[in-house]
């Protein structure tokens, strides 16, 4: 290895004919492979310790009633996080209804018409917005919706989550569409298919697998947000599917249980955390499967 480098540096050969002995190369190869494996293992340690901790501490709390019941008052045994699960799904669903069309739409615009001035402005804005901490987005939604309406609501939470989804989704959509080879667009145009239908039926259709993947990941990330919900949806001890009422969510519920002084609530925090992990893991898994199916097709 060293010898090869010296040779090239000295300009003796353009392509070194012999790079050390076979043995030396085998040793270098082994050491490098070992280092790579060690790096991978190191990177996996935090991931697996989080998983292990959540599963081992949360598994005892899980039961059918934990998924289906309302939270029990302090001191009472039992109870569940059913309303928080429903609340999270409800708000993430609302947020997706707002965020997916806007995010994907902006991404289509960037890919199709994004070379002009407006495109640069939109792209820059999306980049800045993607870097804004989620708690700031929560405060903004508080100012825009909660203050004027004078109370916390699922809608305010959904808007905050949607704002978080839009920029990353827009950029991901743009990337996916730009990955579609130009030759496919030309094939369609050359058949006398109008440009707008080519964009929808050929380009978007081809990018669809990637788009579904990006959308599911954006949804999964929104489901894991706490800070923007603290200011907007707050919490609710009861079932709620009214968009203008405060609403429980798994993340805020975990937060409340975790900062409480009660041992029993700490256990429930772990249980709720495991629920959230299963939810998000499930979504990511679906995203993976969808992407895998597409790339095989």
């Amino acid at each position: 290895m060293n010898m090869a480098m010296t040779n090239v540096a000295a300009g003796q050969y353009a392509i070194p004919r012999r790079v050390g002995s076979h043995r030396a190369r085998a040793v270098t190869n082994g050491v490098m492979t070992g280092l790579c494996a060690a790096a991978v293992a190191l990177a996996l340690v935090p991931l697996f310790s989080v998983l292990w901790l959540v599963v081992s501490k949360g598994i005892h709390s899980l039961s059918l009633s934990f998924f289906t019941k309302l939270p029990a008052p302090v001191g009472e045994l039992g109870g569940g996080v059913g309303n928080a699960i429903v609340g999270t799904l409800f708000m993430v669903g609302l947020a997706s209804c707002i965020g997916l069309p806007l995010g994907v739409g902006a991404g289509i615009f960037l890919a199709e018409r994004g070379d002009g001035k407006l495109g640069h402005v939109v792209r820059f804005t999306a980049e800045v917005l993607a870097g804004v901490p989620s708690i700031v987005v929560g405060v903004v939604a508080y100012g825009l919706i909660v203050l004027p309406m004078r109370h916390f609501s699922a809608m305010a939470g959904a808007v905050a989550l949607a704002i978080l989804m839009i920029p990353t989704l827009a950029r991901a959509t743009e990337e996916m569409i730009r990955l579609v080879p130009r030759s496919l667009r030309e094939a369609s145009l050359a058949l006398g298919v109008p440009a707008w239908r080519t964009s929808l039926s050929v380009v978007l259709r081809t990018a669809l697998g990637g788009l579904i993947n990006a959308a599911l990941l954006a949804i999964a990330r929104a489901a894991g947000e706490t800070a923007p919900l603290l200011f907007t949806a707050l919490n609710n001890q009861y079932w709620n599917l009214h968009p203008l009422q405060p609403t429980a969510s798994l993340t805020v519920q975990i937060y409340n249980y975790a900062i409480s002084p009660y041992e029993d609530w700490h256990d429930k925090a772990w249980g709720a955390a495991l629920c959230l992990l299963i939810l998000i893991g499930g979504l990511s898994l679906i995203a993976r499967l969808a992407a895998g199916r597409r790339s095989q097709a």
């Binding site: 080879p181 030759s183 496919l184 030309e186 094939a187 369609s188 050359a190 058949l191 050929v202 259709r205 081809t206 669809l208 097709a297």
Partner: peptide, 13 residues
């Protein structure tokens, strides 16, 4: 006026 390109460009989906 139809066109056939140098590289085959079938619709993969």
């Amino acid at each position: 006026v139809g066109m056939v390109f140098q590289r085959p460009n079938v619709f993969p989906t």
